[in-house]
Design a protein around this nucleic acid. Structure first.
Lengths: 110, 110
DNA sequence: CTAACGTGCAACCAAATGGTTGTAGAAACT
DNA sequence: AGTTTCTACAACCATTTGGTTGCACGTTAG
């Protein structure tokens, strides 16, 4: 899929979803394989409902997708959103390089 | 400076700080030049105190640094934290590539 | 010296977050 | 058919977040 242009709200949800250690751990598991919500929940010292909410946050951020297999719901990562986030940070770094270049020019001219 | 290893809490603060459009805008300005807190505040439709809090959040995430110049406080970006965040996302993408490679191997062997 | 400016901080408020327990429905096993 | 498993969701609670106003303090300008 092509890299989409994200609205500010989507970027908010993206970084918000990444701002929690449990969710980053769930994301890492979802990146390496398919796991049901219960399988994921068994890994953490919190209730099933809490893990379910974390998965929902990752889903709203488009970082993971759920697909039904019988009575369980398989959570898998969508690397596109991840790439979008990385792309945003690269844009910020490009801004920084612009500034450094401008300062260099000033020093060279002076 | 060398890329540091970040604690989970530091990563939380990093992504949390990036999860707000106003803060991302402040960061973009801080990346391209030095601005006092009042100068930044004049750009947004909210109180000075609100902008001051946003700058404090960016500061706790090590994304910006404040340096005194007379009675004003100049906000400048620290690109190291930005690079750290991008590096983290690259690690997640590396996980994804591992998974893709494993699936490819399965298909090749089968 | 006095006034104005830039900042920091506390108190307060509404809304969102991260957790809990409990209930209920759909799918699967016996 | 009945029971268990997996998931979803509501209600509730404490804490955090994002905003406000007001006040105090150091620094600069007149």
């Amino acid at each position: 899929m092509v890299v989409e242009t994200l609205s500010p709200d989507e970027v908010d949800r993206l970084f918000q979803a990444l701002a929690d250690a449990t969710r980053r751990d769930i994301l890492a598991r979802a990146l390496t394989g398919e796991h049901s919500v219960t399988a994921l929940a068994s890994r953490y010292e919190m209730s099933f409902a809490a893990v379910q909410k974390h998965v929902a946050v990752l889903e709203r951020a488009s970082l993971v997708v759920k697909t039904r297999r019988g009575r369980e719901q398989l959570v898998t990562a969508d690397p596109d959103a991840l790439a979008a986030a990385r792309g945003l940070l690269e844009q910020y770094e490009a801004l920084w390089r612009l500034r450094v270049a401008a300062i260099d020019d000033l020093l060279a001219d002076g």
